[in-house]
Each structure stands twice: as structure tokens, then as C-alpha cells.
Design a protein around this nucleic acid. Structure first.
Length: 552
RNA sequence: GCGCCCGUAGCUCAGUUGGAUAGAGCAUCUGCCUUCUAAGCAGACGGCCGCAGGUUCGAAUCCUGCCGGGCGCACCA
């Protein structure tokens, strides 16, 4: 039982004996200052009014009841305006070692999401070019969020939406064809709006080799189609490989074109029209998103007959809900934030409660720095602009940890030099080092023939120093951290937790000798404690998609 | 002009959704390797939480108005 739950249970009982209900606004949380005990609650202040007593008087009565309740509390104090400061007995914390050992990789998982089907859609970059570093951040956040939600008990499916229909793909085809003609020495004018990256030239060269030079003599439409299909296939394969190298997994790759082929878009249009939410005007087909609070109505079919991006997005989200997801998470670049209201409107029109069933996570742009200077992120930037280059340069672990070390909606400076450095500028090593240190300690113990006695409450009672208790309390807090990260869709909380846990471990390591302890029982108890730390570090790193090496 | 996000130590950022004397890391300075990995630890320095009001027992957190930064406001994606 977690400390907060334990205390909540004890308080509920105590309040009940006084004939009081559990007040809605009660908080139970660790106080800022450790001298106030393990947990503090404002329950007496919140309940005082309805009880008709002064907060401090009520607090005193609760204090007496709590101390009488059971042996898990060693101290209860009334402080300030009526806070109850509670200290748990060491034995309560020591049990955490057993809980971690018993659960192993499952320690930290919970059931708060049980029974809820949730989809996380992320990256979903158009297959018109390689992923860049901004996509990398979205990839890390989405993948890690999926892991966190899974740990919280949600049934999670991850998905990549492939925008393989529409204008951008045609432009890709035209861009490749343009390069093909150029390579064949044909006189061509540079198109206005086309993809200029070197990868387009590479694709053109490969395609010419594969198809033969006759390609450039095909009728325009036919040639563009050949180029488009080839480009899409190759680029998508590259994207998949880049994500794989980044340890990012999508369960489903969902092509936009299948929606069109299945008539889903037409069906959605008909539904909207039937509900009086769509209309014709100025030769275009409009969706009345203002009905749901959007600034203006949005076009679904342009007067030229072409679909807007938004049109298939509605059909796509309709499809998501029809697949049975209770909650749909979209991870977007923050520059798309203006899109949120119309997407919420779209969800309303589909008959869903937008606040609960659509969660949009905005991921801020990444500033790529080298030697303290910003590297431009546009088309013709330096060689580090692609995700693949960055991962090759600094490694997937360091890159992922960096991406997950900030709230997703705050700007992130990604300093290539700092991320490569094996120092505190680069917290990933700090955390991994904690894991490696423990592993190496156990290896050293085995080398010396130390076989720790089984972890029993009696043995673990030897964990009684300040550092022991601090570490134990932090371990106990881990499941709560995971649950909060899931509830608030904030995987970065895990990385902050890990930094703190690693810090405690390093301090512990410096202050408390393990193999060198005077008493073999203390050595054994400490080995068990540190094994628990290693398990939690590893579990946490798993949620971030970062490796936990045994040696460094 | 309208909308969204942000403003916390010199720098980069946390702050558990309203709690007690506001926290980390980096940088700077001072210590700690004959002993389990110094990729480490301890200590010092550093703050009008953008500004001004309001809400209440209590505000970095909530509401309003300014100031400053970013991003959006297409029959683009």
C-alpha cells in the first residue's frame, strides 16, 4: 500500500468516527521541508468549517485517532494553521524493498487506466522527406507517453498517419521528375514550389537507374505518378528505419489513401450534411465549425474540387472512434496549435465529448545548437538537420533523454556538444551511471563470494540511516510518479524523477559503504536496497525508451 | 487587430493543479580519490517567481489589465 493511500484510509476512518465526510479539497502530499515529516495534509483546515470547530482543534482530535490507529505511523504533529504532519515508521518504508523485488519490472505499473482504450498518434510527417530533429522530439514524446500510459494500465495503440494523398505528394512527384530531367540534360525550368533537398536528387538518380531513361519521355501525368509512388515508398522506408533506430514503435501505419478508397470521406460529408453542419458556398463545401466555438467555418472541398487536409482529418478521426478508442491522443508541433479548436469542433460534430475524448499534446520547436550557436532548421541547413544524423551523432539514449527532459510545450535547446558530453550537462549518463554502479557493486559482491541473506523485514530493519530512509521513500514514490505522468500526459515527470533518484543513489554510494560495512547483515540489507534502486531506475528508463547499461 | 503558449537564480529548467522559509542542474568559488566506478559527493554564492491590481486563512500557481518573447490567424500542409 502506498503511503498516501494508507494515510487517506486512516484519515477516512478517523473522520468517520467524528461523523465527518471526506472533504473534496483535501490534499495529501509530501511537504517541501523534510522536517515537517513524510506527508502533510490540510484535511483539518478543509473540514473545520463543516465540523463547526477550529482547524487546530480538529487537527488535534485527528492526531489522537491516527496515533491510536495502527503501527505504521511513528509521529503525527499539528502545525501552523492546522496542518497534520505525519511521519511513517521505518518498517513501513523498509517494506518497499520487498515490494520492488516482488514486482520487478512491473513495479510502478498501475491500474488507473484499466478498461480504457487509448490511441496515441504521433510523428505522422508527410512522406515527402526525411524526418528532422523536430519530428524527433514528437517521436520521443509520443513513444514514451505510450509506454507510460501502458504502465498505467491503459490499452494503448500507437499509430502513424501517412498523408499519402493530396497536393504535397504530387509536388514530391514533380520534384523528382524535375531532377530526373535535369540529370538527363533536358532543358527544364525550375518549378516554383518544389522539394529542393539533396535526397530528391538521390531519389531521381536511383529511379532513373531502375526505370531507365525512357521515364522522362512518358506523358507528364504518368511520369509524375511513377516518381511520386517511388518517392513515397523510398521515403517512407527511410522514415521507418529512422524511427526504428530511434527505438520508436508504431503499431499501425495508417495511409490516408485508404480512407478515400473506402469512401469514408464521402460518408463523413453526408453525415455532416444530414446534421446540418455542412453547406455549399462560393463553389466550395464548408464545415460549420463555428457551431462548436471555432472562429470561422472551414472549407472541406475547395472550389477546384480538391479536398483540404482537414477533410480527411475529420474522416480519419471518425474512423479512430469507430475503431473503439475511448480517448484519442494527437501529438502535434506547437505551430499547429491554431488547429486545435477546429479539431475539437470536429470531435463534437462526431458526437463525442471533445474535452475527454480528444487530447492534443503540443510539442514545441527544437533549437538545435552547436558550439552555442543556433543551427538553422530550414531546408538547406547543415548536416545535422535530420533525425538520423543527430541519432548517429549522439546516440538514441542521449537524444531521447534530452527530448524528454522538458515539458513538451516549452521550448527546448538541443545542444549537440552538450548532449555528446559525458557530464552533468548530459543527465542521461548521470542516471545510467546510477544503474551501472549498483550492477557493478553486485558483481563485485559475487566476486568476493558475498551471498546476501534473504531480504526479510528483520534484515531490512538495518536500513535505518537518513540516507537509507530517503532512498526508500523515493522508491515508494515511483508508482505515484508514473500514475501522475499518465494522468497528466507528461512523460517528462519520469525523467525528473529519475534524476532525483540517481542523485540520491550517488550520494548514498559516497556516504554509506556497502561491501565495506562493519556488519555483514548491513551489507546484505544495503545490497537489497540498491538492487531495488537499480530495478526502479531501469523501469523508469524503460518508460523513456532509454537503455540501462550494467557497465559504463 | 484577434487567438494560443511562455516569462521563476547569471544560463537551462522543475514546482505534484491553492499550502509552511520558492527548488534542481550548469556556470563561479572551496573542499573530497591508498577503500565498493571521481561519468561521483559535500559546501558556498546566487531570487520584487515580468509589472500592477483582485479573489481568501494562504497565490509562483486562480481572475483582470498592462509589459516583453514565441507561434498561429488560407479554398497551405
Amino acid at each position: 500500500m502506498y503511503a498516501t493511500e494508507q494515510l487517506r484510509r486512516l484519515l477516512t476512518t478517523a473522520l468517520g468516527e467524528l461523523g465527518l465526510p471526506w472533504p473534496e479539497k483535501t490534499t495529501i502530499e509530501p511537504p517541501r521541508d523534510k522536517k515537517f515529516g513524510d506527508l502533510a495534509t490540510n484535511v483539518a483546515m478543509v473540514a473545520a468549517k463543516s465540523a463547526g470547530t477550529k482547524p487546530r482543534d480538529l487537527a488535534e482530535r485527528l492526531r489522537t485517532a491516527l496515533l491510536a490507529a495502527d503501527g505504521s505511523l511513528s509521529a503525527v504533529d499539528v502545525a501552523g494553521p492546522g496542518f497534520l504532519n505525519v511521519t511513517f515508521a521505518p518498517a513501513f518504508w523498509q517494506r518497499t524493498v520487498l515490494a520492488v523485488a516482488e514486482a520487478g519490472p512491473a513495479y510502478g505499473t498501475g491500474t488507473s487506466g484499466a478498461g480504457t482504450k487509448i490511441q496515441v498518434e504521433f510523428v505522422s510527417a508527410n512522406p515527402t522527406g526525411p524526418l528532422h530533429i523536430g519530428h524527433g522530439r514528437g517521436a520521443a514524446v509520443g513513444d514514451s507517453l505510450a509506454r507510460v500510459l501502458r504502465a498505467a494500465g491503459f490499452a494503448v495503440e500507437t499509430e502513424y498517419y501517412i498523408n499519402d494523398a493530396g497536393r504535397q505528394m504530387r509536388i514530391l512527384g514533380q520534384s523528382i521528375l524535375y531532377r530526373c530531367r535535369e540529370l538527363r540534360g533536358l532543358p527544364v525550368d525550375e518549378p516554383e514550389d518544389y522539394y529542393r533537398g539533396d535526397y530528391v536528387k538521390d531519389l531521381a538518380r536511383e529511379l532513373l537507374e531502375k526505370e531507365g531513361p525512357g521515364l522522362v519521355n512518358l506523358p507528364e501525368d504518368e511520369a509524375v505518378t511513377v516518381c511520386r509512388l517511388y518517392g513515397e515508398q523510398e521515403i517512407l522506408a527511410g522514415i521507418k528505419k529512422d524511427l526504428e533506430d530511434f527505438r520508436v514503435h508504431h503499431d499501425v501505419w495508417f495511409p490516408e489513401s485508404t480512407l478515400l478508397a473506402a469512401g469514408a470521406v464521402d460518408k463523413t460529408f453526408a453525415d455532416l450534411r444530414a446534421k446540418n453542419l455542412a453547406y455549399d458556398k462560393d463553389g466550395a463545401f464548408w464545415f460549420a465549425t463555428t457551431t462548436f466555438g471555432d472562429d470561422k467555418d472551414r472549407v472541406l472541398v475547395k472550389s477546384g474540387g480538391e479536398l483540404t487536409y482537414f477533410a480527411s482529418d475529420i474522416a480519419y478521426h471518425d474512423d479512430k472512434f469507430k475503431r473503439g478508442f475511448d480517448v484519442v491522443v494527437d501529438i502535434w508541433g506547437a505551430d499547429h496549435h491554431g488547429y486545435v479548436p477546429r479539431m475539437k469542433a470536429c470531435v463534437s460534430a462526431l458526437g463525442r465529448e471533445p474535452e475527454t475524448s480528444l487530447k492534443v499534446i503540443l510539442v514545441q520547436l527544437v533549437n538545435l545548437l552547436k558550439g552555442g550557436e543556433q543551427i538553422a532548421m530550414s531546408t538547406r541547413a547543415g548536416k545535422f538537420e535530420t533525425l538520423a544524423d543527430v541519432v548517429a551523432e549522439v546516440g538514441a539514449d542521449a537524444a531521447r533523454f534530452m527530448f524528454l527532459s522538458r515539458k513538451s510545450d516549452s521550448h527546448l535547446d538541443f545542444d549537440l556538444d552538450a548532449v555528446k558530453e559525458k557530464s552533468m550537462d548530459n543527465p542521461v549518463y548521470y542516471v545510467q551511471y546510477a544503474h551501472a554502479r549498483v550492477c557493478s557493486l553486485w558483481a563485485k559482491a559475487a566476486e568476493r563470494g558475498v551471498v546476501p541473506a534473504a531480504a526479510t523485514p528483520e534484515l531490512l530493519a538495518r536500513l535505518d540511516t537518513d540516507e537509507d530512509l530517503e532512498l526508500l521513500k523515493l522508491l515508494e514514490q515511483y508508482p505515484d510518479t508514473v500514475a501522475t505522468a499518465a494522468r497528466t500526459f507528461a512523460p517528462h515527470l519520469v525523467s525528473f524523477y529519475l534524476r532525483e533518484l540517481a542523485g540520491r543513489l550517488h550520494r548514498y554510494y559516497t556516504v554509506n559503504p556497502v561491501l565495506g560495512a562493519d556488519d555483514p547483515a548491513v551489507t546484505d540489507a544495503r545490497l537489497h536496497l540498491l538492487a531495488a534502486v537499480a530495478t526502479v531506475v531501469k523501469n523508469g528508463l524503460d518508460l523513456l525508451g532509454v537503455a540501462a547499461p550494467e557497465k559504463m
